[in-house]
């Protein structure tokens, strides 16, 4: 018997989450769909024609962002209560399997459900509006998926990619916080997160102000300035898009392994 990762046990754990939560998942899903439809309905212009691109885009990002954080916290909520923590830790499965079963819902099921549902609502809205108002300038999609995949691994600064980057960091950070804090984990995690952002921003300000100074004055050649900024932004984006989410997950997993009650 594999003591670290057994696909059958992982399947049982995934089933456990589904059976125990399916009613709540269903109700939340219906509420989410209704909210999205309401956003589109209220987001039409005065003639009832175009739905603003920012509203379409925002309903996806804000919906995923806000509810995704709540969902990530909910999936690992077993740690908010001593009896449920004990029951969870003593389930005959490895720590990795327990962790992956939660991640399966947060990082795989949730995005698929949200993106597909949003796409369906967006498609329906487009078809309805186009049939009623053929000359409306509404675009078929809010973002081209091919464009998304082409740009995700580059350092291009697009709004959508920044949204995804923030999302993944918030989700993974929330998972870590849920495992660290037993009571009021979401509030404590949010406090920790915003405090960390404030400290990092302050350190960045200090670095630029006291060490590097004014870029325009201290770096004489434009080529040098551009090269410095490119490296700085590339490192920042790689850190935020790839390193930090994995780091939060690693910390969360180690905390799960060491969890005591």
């Amino acid at each position: 018997m594999n003591q670290t990762l057994d696909i059958q046990r992982l399947g049982w754990l995934i089933k456990r989450i589904w059976v125990e939560n399916r009613k709540l998942f269903g109700m939340t899903y219906v509420v989410m769909v209704l909210l999205c439809i309401a956003t589109y309905y209220l987001g039409r212009d005065a003639d009832g024609a175009i739905v603003d691109r920012d509203i379409r885009f925002g309903s996806l990002i804000v919906g995923m962002f806000g509810l995704g954080v709540l969902f990530a916290n909910y999936i690992f909520r077993d740690f908010s209560h001593t009896p449920s923590t004990m029951s969870y830790l003593l389930l005959p499965a490895s720590h990795l399997e327990k962790f992956l079963s939660g991640l399966f819902y947060v990082l795989i099921v949730y995005p698929i459900v949200i993106i597909s549902t949003h796409s369906l609502i967006d498609y329906a809205a487009f078809e309805i509006i186009k049939s009623s108002y053929p000359n409306t300038p509404m675009e078929r999609t809010i973002i081209s998926y091919s464009e998304l995949f082409e740009t995700y691994f580059s350092v291009q600064d697009t709004r959508f990619l920044n949204g995804i980057t923030i999302l993944t960091n918030f989700w993974t950070f929330t998972i870590m916080g849920t495992l660290f804090f037993q009571r009021l984990s979401l509030i404590k995690t949010a406090f920790l997160g915003f405090s960390s952002i404030a400290i990092i921003a302050w350190l960045e300000y200090l670095m630029f102000h006291y060490i590097i100074g004014d870029l325009n004055n201290n770096i004489s050649f434009n080529a040098e300035k551009d090269s410095f900024l490119t490296v700085y932004i590339t490192v920042g984006i790689v850190l935020l898009r790839f390193v930090l989410p994995l780091f939060w997950l690693l910390i969360a997993y180690l905390k799960l392994k060491e969890k005591e009650v």
Binding site: Q3, R9, L90, L91, P92, S94, E97
Partner: peptide, 9 residues
């Protein structure tokens, strides 16, 4: 907390 142990308890 290995699965083999947890199955026995």
């Amino acid at each position: 907390r290995q699965p083999k142990f947890l199955q026995e308890l």
